[in-house]
């Protein structure tokens, strides 16, 4: 465990409550209805114990988790830049390439729809929780809404978070959702599941720092790590007549 700095000035902590709220599974973004591909993987690949769940979480974290964290960090960065440059007038133009690049990295139409639904919900919630004219601009975009990582990055920025924090929230979320689903689907011991998630904390931070590196550059340079079975399984899962989770 790291050194506890009891003398940390309170100023350094001001962003923490907002970050914790944003990363809390109970933050109303609709994410609870999704298993991050776990329901499909559990059935198709026969995941039925903790070690197999942990493998799945690592695989997801290092592929779609890394991509989500990178796009969240970039959206957060672009949001701050647009505010600094012209009070957000250029925000939509700056964020547009992130949407196109995420479409290209989300080949499953099922998962593209899920991502945009969650993104729209995030903006709706974020506008009430951390009112910000930048979020108002995003909410005014006609169509299906922004992708989930773009929404998360924007809301994190509106909540005063730097890109690195937004990336940690995204990376953490990429495993926390499926882990919660694992408890519900497989009846795994919630204490033990949380111990796995805690153990993956160091990996979450590694992924988040890798994700934050390119946030300054163009969207095309962001990671494109793919979870091939996640995509294929999502397409099959969407055709099931009975399922506990929407994805």
């Amino acid at each position: 465990m790291g050194t506890v700095q009891t003398g940390t000035p309170m100023a350094d902590l001001t962003g923490l409550p907002a970050l914790m709220q944003l990363a809390d599974g109970r933050f109303p973004t609709g994410g609870h209805a999704h298993s991050g591909g776990f329901e499909a993987a559990a059935q198709r690949e026969g995941i039925n114990d903790l070690p197999a769940m942990e493998e799945f979480l690592i695989g997801r974290l290092r592929t779609t988790g890394l991509v989500a964290a990178a796009f969240t960090a970039a959206a957060c960065q672009y949001f701050h830049q647009a505010m600094a440059a012209d009070q957000g007038a250029s925000l939509l133009d700056r964020l547009a390439p992130l949407g196109r690049e995420l479409d290209a990295r989300t080949p499953s139409p099922v998962l593209r729809t899920v991502s945009r639904r969650l993104g729209r919900q995030l903006i709706r919630t974020g506008r009430v929780v951390w009112p910000h004219q930048g979020l108002d601009r995003l909410a005014s975009v006609p169509g299906q809404g922004v992708h989930q990582p773009v929404g998360l990055g924007a809301v994190a920025a509106a909540a005063g978070q730097p890109p690195a924090h937004a990336a940690v929230a995204a990376a953490q979320e990429s495993i926390a959702g499926p882990a919660t689903a694992a408890v519900r689907l497989l009846g795994l011991d919630p204490f033990a599941v949380n111990a796995v998630v805690a153990r993956l904390g160091a990996e979450v931070v590694r992924v988040a720092s890798e994700a934050t590196g390119p946030a300054d550059g163009p969207a095309s340079a962001l990671p494109a790590s793919a979870g091939y079975l996640l995509d294929v399984s999502a397409e099959f899962h969407a055709t099931w007549e009975v399922r506990l989770f929407a994805s």
């Binding site: 695989g59 592929t63 979870g227």
Partner: peptide, 9 residues
């Protein structure tokens, strides 16, 4: 890490 998990291949 995780490449041979049910999330990837």
């Amino acid at each position: 890490a995780g490449w041979n998990s049910p999330a990837v291949v």
